[in-house]
Design a protein around this nucleic acid. Sequence first.
DNA 1: TAATCATGTTAGGTGAACCTTACTAAATTT
DNA 2: AAATTTAGTAAGGTTCACCTAACATGATTA
Lengths: 132, 132
Amino acid sequence: MITSGLQDYIELIYNSITENKELKAIDIANKFNISRSSVSEALIRLSDLDLILYEGRKGIKITEKGIVEAKRIIKKHEVLCDFFHKILNADFEIASKNACKIEHVIDEELIEKISNFTEFCITNNINNNKKG
Amino acid sequence: MITSGLQDYIELIYNSITENKELKAIDIANKFNISRSSVSEALIRLSDLDLILYEGRKGIKITEKGIVEAKRIIKKHEVLCDFFHKILNADFEIASKNACKIEHVIDEELIEKISNFTEFCITNNINNNKKG
DNA sequence: TAATCATGTTAGGTGAACCTTACTAAATTT
DNA sequence: AAATTTAGTAAGGTTCACCTAACATGATTA
């Protein structure tokens, strides 16, 4: 199983590629506040898992398998973030930060339910108006 | 910061004590499928953190600080479990299993919002009736 | 083009949370 | 009471995801 750290990295790689932004190892290091050498190791692990193609300075490419994995994680992130922000009215920062952590541990099954429920709440204008 | 493993153990210790069940190190080992020696180490760490009083076979006692910590975690568990089970209509098993993982990473702030929202949904009879 | 700077790699190390194996001591059974 | 079983400890090992320091190489600039 892919660890939560690797999930974070593949997520960033996918997002950068879809936005046509060149992503370098050092960008990952800066984003997650980890050392260049840790990124180096992580990219090798992602390559070993066939999630990316990595050739040092020549750049980072994502594989089909990597895209599937990234989308899976990003979907979880979005569903959680939307629910926290739009339905619970949490600050976007809080919503996103918590989604980042929960996305690594929650089951798809529950994500589906949250997704449906968020939609239901939006169509029926249900949300958490209390300050708490 | 207390790690998620230690959180699991203090949670079990607290629950056993409040149910007047004698809890031994080996029970923790069995519950979480870890070795006796790992439990031994974990109990020393919990002692070092002043969360429990541990004297080998004489038993495990929880401190005031340990009670506060345990309650904090158990509250998160219950809030999440209730929301997943009662509002999203997830199986209790799934609800509980996911709560066990999420309780270690979610902010109190969001727990408060989920708690209020669950209450709101119950009083207004709102829940996820879709199968998905 | 030579020096400098940016980026990536390598080697070796840390702490956390596990593990196994062997041992010790307490409790139970015979 | 002796033998056996159960519970806990100690020593030493593994893996993971990080780290730093030193080094190598590619890119930029004086």
